[in-house]
Structures are given as structure tokens and as C-alpha cells.
């Protein structure tokens, strides 16, 4: 007897592998928007002031929010989300499996992209290590929040931009603690422990997002 978690994970991954194209679009969107920022601010200014962290995190938030739509809306439109629900799968488990799949499929390959980004911005070897750590601990909460936002927008026929207005305030803590780790280092001496706060935020976001997505998924079919 296979557990529900195993069944759902294998389903998500088998569908996700077929959707590999999403990763290309995600990565190219990320790189192109970095290019836009470089043209707007000037490459010297970015290297001199070390403002690569805010740029990377803001772009990451927007690209994750845009990509998360693919993981929910397809399932919702062809009725397979409903199918999973009436077959008696737990709603929290469905979203948990979706977020794990999205993290493995989309955000883990981004770590391979980080060296390229570090060449663009002339980041030190020490700094890129902290970028990795922040990346590992902050992106799970990004993924969860973006899935909730795309669930909110599932039934909005007209105005999809509302999902950005709704969910962007909740990204404020994450973006504060990821993008200003350098300044923390200078003033608060928290350079090494910054990621602990990110872990804390993740453990608050996880139950909250799972519970609310369950509430939303019960509403979707009405």
C-alpha cells in the first residue's frame, strides 16, 4: 500500500518533467530582467555599491509568482485538482507536494545559475556562499506564498494583477532579511546567523499557507 504522499509526489514529478519548458522560461526571464536592471542602473554602480542582493531577490519574487501560475492553473482548468479532491486526498498534502515539486523543479536548478549571476555582478566568493544559504532557506517560503497567491487568482476572470497586490505585502519580511544581510554584517554582526530568521519565517509560513490553501481549495468548486 503506497502512501498518499508518495502517490501525489510521483504524479507531480511525472507531470513536471513533461513541463520542463517552464524552467527555461523561468531562467530566461530571470536573466533578461537582470539585464534590464544592469542597463538601468549601470554596471559600475552596481559593482561599486554592492546592490546585487536586492535586485536578485526582487526579480526572484516576481519570477516565482509568475511561474507558480503554471503549477496550479493547469490542474484547475482541466479538472484534475477537483479529481484529486473527490478521490479523498488531503488538500494540504496536495499543496505541499506541489510546492516541493516546484522547489525541486524550478528553484534548485537556479543554484546552478547563480555562478553566472555572480560573474555579472562581480560578487566575491565569500558573499556568494551567503547568497546560497539565503537562497536555500528563503525560497521555500517564497514558493508557498506564491502558490497561495495563484490559488487566490484562480477564479479571477478579469484582473489577474490583483494577486500581486494581495500577496506582495507578505514578502516584506523575506525581502528584508535576504537582501540586507550585508548591512546586518556591518552593523549588527549578524552575518552568519541571518538565515536562522529565514528558517523561522519559513516555519510560520508553512502551516499558514497550507491551512489557507485548504480553505481556498474548498471554495474553488463552489
Amino acid at each position: 500500500m503506497k502512501s498518499d504522499f508518495y502517490i501525489l509526489m510521483s504524479r507531480e514529478i511525472s507531470i513536471g518533467i513533461k513541463n520542463f519548458f517552464v524552467l527555461y522560461t523561468f531562467a530566461s526571464f530571470f536573466i533578461i530582467s537582470i539585464l534590464i536592471f544592469v542597463f538601468a542602473i549601470g554596471s559600475d554602480l552596481i559593482a561599486k555599491n554592492n546592490i546585487y542582493e536586492p535586485i536578485i531577490w526582487v526579480l526572484l519574487i516576481f519570477s516565482v509568482m509568475l511561474v507558480s501560475e503554471n503549477f496550479v492553473s493547469n490542474d484547475c482548468n482541466d479538472g484534475s485538482l477537483k479529481e484529486l479532491q473527490f478521490l479523498g486526498y488531503n488538500e494540504e498534502l496536495i499543496i505541499l507536494c506541489k510546492s516541493i515539486t516546484m522547489w525541486i523543479m524550478i528553484l534548485l536548478p537556479m543554484i546552478a545559475l547563480m555562478p553566472i549571476v555572480s560573474i555579472f555582478f562581480k560578487i566575491d566568493y565569500v558573499d556568494i556562499f551567503y547568497l546560497f544559504i539565503n537562497f536555500l532557506f528563503a525560497t521555500p517560503s517564497l514558493v508557498l506564498l506564491s502558490l497561495v497567491s495563484s490559488l487566490f487568482s484562480m477564479q479571477l476572470k478579469r484582473n489577474k494583477i490583483i494577486q500581486f497586490i494581495i500577496i506582495l505585502p507578505f514578502y516584506i519580511p523575506i525581502i528584508i532579511f535576504t537582501s540586507s544581510s550585508k548591512k546586518f554584517a556591518l552593523e549588527n554582526n549578524l552575518y552568519n546567523n541571518n538565515f536562522l530568521i529565514l528558517i523561522g519565517i519559513f516555519f510560520i509560513t508553512l502551516p499558514l499557507c497550507l491551512y489557507t490553501s485548504r480553505l481556498i481549495m474548498k471554495e474553488i468548486n463552489k
Binding site: 505585502p169 528584508i176 548591512k183 489557507t212
Partner: peptide, 26 residues
Amino acid sequence: YAAILAIIGIINLPIIKWSVDWWSTL
């Protein structure tokens, strides 16, 4: 949906407030 959003807000607004405090002292 507004009720669901408000419930996310109850838990997240203190966190946002706290992190903004930290950010502004920085």
C-alpha cells in the same frame, strides 16, 4: 476570500511590523 486573507494577515502583520522595525533601525 477576504476572510481568508484577513486570517493570513493576523499572523503575518506582527512579523511584518517586527521586521520593518528591525529594518528601520538598520
